[in-house]
């Protein structure tokens, strides 16, 4: 049985689909969006994560590390990422949870069991399971098996995808899952390459095909200050959506609560803007003027 790499299973999720849900975050993403607030979801391997504010400076990690990859500083453990072989023994040793493992392998059945814990709550609330990431389709086979297993149990499923994958894969998934949240970040291919690290041609192509296939899609747009909040981009996006027969869009506000996570992974945070709640309102006006309705989440 194929295993999946998952970095979080979040219960009581209210904003990833209808009702009260469990969101399963798949680790690994083909894109590198500069504003990404889940950087631990990008790498396709397990990673060592530091929460230095929890550190009590006991030094257990440093003493225990076989690779001598950890140094203890005034601000907590300092990890030499080159030397670290990701054995993760320090995570067990650490008494406070300062060191944590981002990513853990799960079998399909293990995820299903975790999801079943709240089955009554899904039933009461009309909720279910949402597969998010990272990019769920990057672990296509595992995703397929998991969705089939959940469908067998009559649990409502949703996926959150960038659409950056082969048409064959997303087509198969769209036949099984009940709902697809589809991110449309930038309409201009050049900007897309700059800000997400990939061309959007495949993404838009897949979206058009999904619309034609009649799949249950909600198009979403994370509104990123000075990246895609320009009148030009919004008008183009609205025009594009109209042309392919999509009538509404859901806008997600940008937040920077994930910027601290970059530090925990010893990564450079490429982007850090102040969130601005005005943006959503301004963008909504432009979308609506161009014939696209704004839907609120869930």
């Amino acid at each position: 049985m194929k295993k999946g790499l998952i970095f979080n299973i979040q219960r009581y999720s209210l904003h990833d689909g209808p009702g009260i849900r469990t969101t399963v975050f798949f680790k690994g993403c083909p894109l590198k969006c500069q504003w990404c607030q889940n950087p631990e979801g990008i790498d396709t391997d397990v990673e060592l994560f530091r929460h230095n504010q929890k550190c009590i400076h006991c030094g257990s990690c440093m003493t225990h590390c076989h690779e001598k990859a950890i140094d203890l500083t005034d601000s907590g453990p300092l990890v030499n990422r080159q030397a670290c072989n990701r054995c993760m023994e320090c995570v067990d040793i650490c008494p406070t949870g300062t060191l944590e493992m981002a990513g853990k392998e799960y079998s399909v059945n293990e995820v299903v069991q975790a999801a079943l814990k709240d089955i009554l709550i899904y039933e009461e609330s009309g909720g279910g399971v949402t597969i998010s990431g990272g990019e769920p389709l990057l672990q296509y086979e595992f995703l397929l098996e998991l969705l089939l297993a959940l469908k067998k149990l009559n649990i409502h499923t949703a996926i959150e995808t960038s659409g950056y994958c082969s048409w064959e894969k997303i087509k198969e998934i769209s036949k099984i899952t009940d709902l697809i949240y589809y991110d449309l970040k930038l309409i201009d291919d050049n900007s897309s390459r700059i800000f997400t690290g990939a061309s959007n041609i495949l993404i838009m192509d897949n979206l058009e095909r999904l619309v034609i296939s009649g799949a249950n899609i909600v198009v979403r747009m994370p509104l990123i200050p000075s990246v895609n909040d320009t009148r030009d981009n919004i008008e183009h996006t609205a025009g594009y959506l109209s042309s392919i027969g999509v009538k509404c869009i859901e806008l997600l506000p940008y937040h920077n609560l994930g910027s601290v996570k970059y530090e925990g992974l010893d990564l450079e945070c490429p982007f850090n803007y102040r969130p601005n709640s005005e943006l959503i309102r301004q963008a909504s006006v432009i979308f609506e003027a161009n014939g696209i309705y704004i839907t609120s989440e869930g």
């Binding site: 009581y12 209210l14 904003h15 009702g19 009260i20 009554l120 709550i121 009461e124 609330s125 909720g127 609120s296 989440e297 869930g298």
Partner: peptide, 14 residues
Amino acid sequence: GEKGLNSLVHLIRS
């Protein structure tokens, strides 16, 4: 929001 309010009702019912 409505969603938060509903979740309160659903938690109670569950």
